[in-house]
Design a protein around this nucleic acid. Structure first.
Lengths: 182, 182
DNA sequence: TATTCGTATTCAATCTTTTGAATACAAGCA
DNA sequence: TGCTTGTATTCAAAAGATTGAATACGAATA
C-alpha cells in the first residue's frame, strides 16, 4: 500500500505530471524500492485527487488531452506524515527462483546452474546501475544533510540487496559444482 | 505467478490437503520464498484441479466437509518442469521503508531511527528462525545430495536476505547518528 | 463446564497489479 | 516521406492478493 505514499512523497518534493511520476518509478529513484506501471500511477493520482490529497492544474495541450500538473495538498501532506509515523512491515518475499529449492532436482542440474549464472549477471548489472545513481551522494557521505542521507541510505539498501544476490549466486554455484564433481 | 508452481512443487514431493499446503507457507519451507494465505491456497488448488494439474481424493469427515487430499498429475508434473526450464525474473522490490528515503525528513529523525531499530530486530529474529530451519542441512553440507542442497541453498538465500537487512540497519543507524551528532 | 486451539473447507467483497489497447502530436532520423 | 521515439492521458478486462467471515468438531486447558 505504499504506492499512494510514494507518489505523495514525490509530490512533496515538487509538482509533477502523471507522466513524470511514472518515470520516477521506471527510470528514477522510485524504482529502488517500489514498482508501478504508468496506468497504475494515473489511476492512483485520480484516486488521490478524489480523496483531496492532491490537486492539479490543467495545462492545455495543442489538439490533445490536457496535461495535469499535480501538487500535494495540506491534507495529502498530513496523510504522508501519518503514514511515515506508523511502523512498516517487512515485505513478504516472493521469489520465483525459490521453486528450484523444492523441485530443482526435476530438471538437469545444468538448468539450475545456468539459471543462477544468468541471475547473477542480472543482479550484477542492477547493482552497477544503482551505484551510478548513488555516486553523487556517495562522494561526500559525511557532508550530506539528513534529507540526502536518507536518500543515499535507501539507494544503499537497494545496492546491498543486489550485491547480496550476486554473492549468494557465487556461493550456490560453488556448492553445486562441488556436489556435481563429487 | 509462482504460487501455482510452488504448490505443484509441494505436491510433487507428497500428496497434501489444502490445509497442509497452506501450512507449508505459513510455518514451513514455502514461507522462505513465497507467501500465500489459506484462502489463496484453496482457490489455487481448485483452479489447478480444473486445469487437470492435480486430482484429489475426498476423505469423509464426521459431520463436516470432506477433507481433500491432492496429488499431482502427470500433466501437472510436466507443467512444473516446463516452468522450471523457463528463465526467472528478479522479483520487483516493494519496500514500504523506502518512502523514508524520499520523505523521511518530514518526520523527526528519532522516528526514522527508531523504525530502523525496530526493523533490525525483526530481521534478526527472522534470520534466527531461518537458521534453525536450516540447521539440519547446514550440519553436513558437503554430504548433501543435490535435492537437499537445493533446499539448503534457498534457505541460505533467505538467511542472507535477512542478515543483509540487519547489516544495512547497522550501517544506516551509524550514519544517522554521525549526522545528528555533527 | 466453558473457552481456546488445531484441524478443515468455503464464500464474498474489495483492493492491487498486470496486460493490452487507443489516441495524438512534435521532433529527429533514414 | 515514412518511421521511430518521446511526451501525455485514458479506458477496460483479467489476474492476483487481501480482508473478513461462517461453519464444525475433537482435544486440551482453565
Amino acid at each position: 500500500m505504499a504506492l499512494k505514499h510514494t507518489i505523495l512523497a514525490f509530490l512533496s518534493r515538487q509538482p509533477l505530471s502523471g507522466y513524470e511520476v511514472a518515470k520516477e518509478f521506471t527510470e528514477g529513484f522510485g524504482g529502488c524500492f517500489w514498482k508501478a506501471s504508468q496506468q497504475q500511477v494515473y489511476a492512483e493520482l485520480a484516486k488521490l485527487e478524489r480523496q483531496g490529497c492532491v490537486v492539479y492544474e490543467a495545462i492545455p495541450q495543442a489538439g490533445r488531452l490536457d496535461k495535469k500538473i499535480y501538487s500535494i495538498t495540506p491534507s495529502g501532506h498530513q496523510s504522508l506524515i501519518d503514514w511515515l509515523t506508523q511502523p512498516t512491515e517487512p515485505t513478504a518475499i516472493r521469489e520465483d527462483l525459490g521453486v528450484m529449492g523444492l523441485a530443482g532436482h526435476l530438471v538437469p542440474n545444468q538448468v539450475v546452474y545456468g539459471e543462477i549464472e544468468r541471475r547473477q549477471n542480472l543482479h550484477r548489472d542492477m547493482a552497477q546501475h544503482l551505484k551510478t545513481m548513488d555516486s553523487h551522494f556517495a562522494k561526500h557521505v559525511d557532508a550530506l544533510e539528513l534529507k540526502d542521507l536518507y536518500m543515499h541510505l535507501i539507494i544503499r539498501r537497494a545496492i546491498r540487496y543486489q550485491e547480496d544476490w550476486v554473492a549468494w549466486c557465487d556461493e550456490a554455484l560453488e556448492a553445486i559444482e562441488r556436489v556435481v564433481n563429487r
